[in-house]
Design a protein around this nucleic acid. Sequence first.
DNA 1: GTATAAACTAAGCCTTGGCTAAATTATAAG
DNA 2: CTTATAATTTAGCCAAGGCTTAGTTTATAC
Lengths: 148, 148
Amino acid sequence: MRDEGKLPEAHEQAARFTQVREAHKTEATEDYVELIDDLIRVHGEARLVDVASRMGVTQPTASKTLARLQRDGFVNSEPYRSIFLTDQGKALATESRLRHEIVFEFLLSIGVSHETATRDSEGMEHHVSEETLKVFKKVIRQNSKPKP
Amino acid sequence: MRDEGKLPEAHEQAARFTQVREAHKTEATEDYVELIDDLIRVHGEARLVDVASRMGVTQPTASKTLARLQRDGFVNSEPYRSIFLTDQGKALATESRLRHEIVFEFLLSIGVSHETATRDSEGMEHHVSEETLKVFKKVIRQNSKPKP
DNA sequence: GTATAAACTAAGCCTTGGCTAAATTATAAG
DNA sequence: CTTATAATTTAGCCAAGGCTTAGTTTATAC
Ligand SMILES: [Mn+2]
Ligand SMILES: [Mn+2]
Ligand SMILES: [Mn+2]
Ligand SMILES: [Mn+2]
């Protein structure tokens, strides 16, 4: 017995969990810059009160997170003023939104409801590699063409 | 201009982020019980040293996490002895493995490479709702049948 | 223009989940 | 049976990301 071979190599398995942990580290940053970018587009500015309410956290929590983002060079703001994205922040926002949209559209295209696609894509987006993203794009194309 | 309507309702958006945060809370638990179950199947027992090396963390980190899992009723173990799953832990392991396998098989079935499917599914699995899972299963079935 | 309300910051607390270094226990070798 | 090695625990540190409560600043209303 002792079906060895069922388990992957330890260091490979470890590498995968490490990669997931890495993704989680950048997750808050991606969600925040994406939201800030949206707020600026639609409202002309991003206020803490809106960031907090849309992220589903209290204002002090949003404030502290934004301090981290500022420390790491993604946003800029002066006390009691609204929040701006740095170039680095804008770049990440653009990249994140694109990836998020692809995951969302992909879920729709395979038959997931709008509501569920909206919900699931918010978490999935951070764990989809470039390779998988490419496949997603292909599937979106294929599922939208066939309408003769 | 001012394309209002572009932003979802604040409370709905907040609910989505809250849901992702909820998923992250159970993520460690799911990955640990699934791994422990695998180790018991293949090696006959689950030792801390193996859990740690396969999770990609140090032994003290694994030890502390397992103490939490024990506190929450998912595992049992006596000092310096190997780790056992409670009924609750076994149930969660089974459920988690099933979901993980579906996500993995789904990625394969749409054309993602074995290596990438292995990596991406480790993170994605925790953010896939029941509805999406159902769609995944359907796609797996459809993509495996057509071979006449 | 001043009073009230809203937005924001400050301070302090908590849990999770990482780490290292040192002590303890169990196992293996000789 | 004793000793060396391996496994595990303990203690203590840290950062992220949550929270509440209280103070400060800005904006609004009158
Ligand atoms: Mn997200
Ligand atoms: Mn995640
Ligand atoms: Mn899993
Ligand atoms: Mn996982």
